[in-house]
C-alpha cells in the first residue's frame, strides 16, 4: 500500500457507511474476524451467498505454514501486546483473521509470504536463527530496524513495508474483534435514543445548543 492508499483506507475506515460505501470500489468486508473461526455453523445474519463464500474460504487449504503462523503470532503480539486496558493480538485471534483475509484479499498474499521470508532471511544472516527462534532481545532488535518508517535504513525498506502491512492487518483484525472494539471505545451499534452531543463534551469544545435547536431537534427528555 502506498501512502495515499493507506491514508485513504485509514480515513475511509472512519467514514459513515452511508456516504462512503457508495464511493468505495472494494466494499468493506465486515466482521471478517468472526469468519476466521469458520468451523462452527455460521449463525450470522448474512446472505446465503456470503455464508457460502465464508465456508468456501474456510475449507481452502491453509495459506500460511505452521512456521509462518507462529511468526505472525509473535509479530502480532509485539505490535499489539496485552496492556492495562485490553488483551493482545493473539487473544483477539488476529492470526486467524490474517489467515482469513489473505484468502479473501489475495493481493495481500505475496507481500505477506515474501515479507515473512525476508524477515527470516535477515534473522538467519544476523543471528543464525529464524525470527521465532531468536531471543527476545534479538527479535526486538530486528523489529526496531523495520518498525519506524522515518528512521529505517534504505536497505531495510522492504522489511519496513512488510512490517507496516503487518501492523495494518493486526490493527484491523484486533479492533474489529470484541476485545478491540471495547478497547477503542466504539459505543455505537446499540439501540439508543440520540440525546444530542453530551453536555460535558459540548462544554469541552465551548459549544452549546441554542433554544431553537433544543426545541426542534431534541424533543424528548434531555436527561433520558
Amino acid at each position: 500500500m502506498n501512502r495515499r492508499d493507506s491514508l485513504k483506507a485509514l480515513v475511509v475506515g472512519g467514514l459513515a457507511a452511508t456516504t462512503l460505501v457508495e464511493a468505495c470500489k472494494q466494499p468493506a468486508k465486515e466482521n471478517a474476524a468472526e469468519t476466521a473461526t469458520g468451523n462452527q455453523p455460521d449463525q450470522s445474519d448474512r446472505m446465503a451467498e456470503e455464508k457460502a463464500y465464508a465456508k468456501k474460504l474456510a475449507a481452502e487449504p491453509k495459506f500460511f505454514t505452521d512456521h509462518e503462523m507462529a511468526t505472525i503470532t509473535v509479530l502480532g503480539d509485539i505490535i499489539i501486546p496485552k496492556d492495562d486496558i485490553s488483551g493482545s493480538a493473539s487473544d483477539a485471534k488476529v492470526p486467524d483473521f490474517i489467515e482469513f483475509i489473505v484468502k479473501d484479499m489475495p493481493n495481500h498474499q505475496t507481500p505477506m509470504k515474501g515479507g515473512l521470508r525476508w524477515l527470516d532471511l535477515q534473522c538467519l544472516n544476523r543471528y543464525n536463527n529464524s525470527f521465532i527462534d531468536c531471543s527476545h532481545t534479538q527479535q526486538m532488535e530486528m523489529v526496531d530496524e523495520i518498525a519506524w518508517p522515518k528512521k529505517a535504513k534504505p536497505e531495510m525498506r522492504q522489511g519496513m513495508a512488510f512490517f507496516s502491512l503487518m501492523r495494518n492487518l493486526t490493527a484491523t483484525g484486533f479492533y474489529t474483534s470484541q476485545i478491540g472494539v471495547k478497547d477503542i471505545g466504539y459505543m455505537g451499534n446499540t439501540p439508543n435514543q440520540w440525546n444530542g452531543v453530551p453536555d460535558d463534551v459540548l462544554k469541552q469544545y465551548g459549544l452549546s445548543y441554542n433554544e431553537k435547536e433544543l426545541k426542534e431537534c431534541i424533543s424528548f427528555d434531555k436527561k433520558a
Partner: peptide, 18 residues
Amino acid sequence: YGGGFDMPLYGFNWGIEQ
C-alpha cells in the same frame, strides 16, 4: 459528511505511521 466514532471495519487504523 462522515467521520467521528465509526464502527471499526476492514481498513480501520491503517497507516497510523502517517
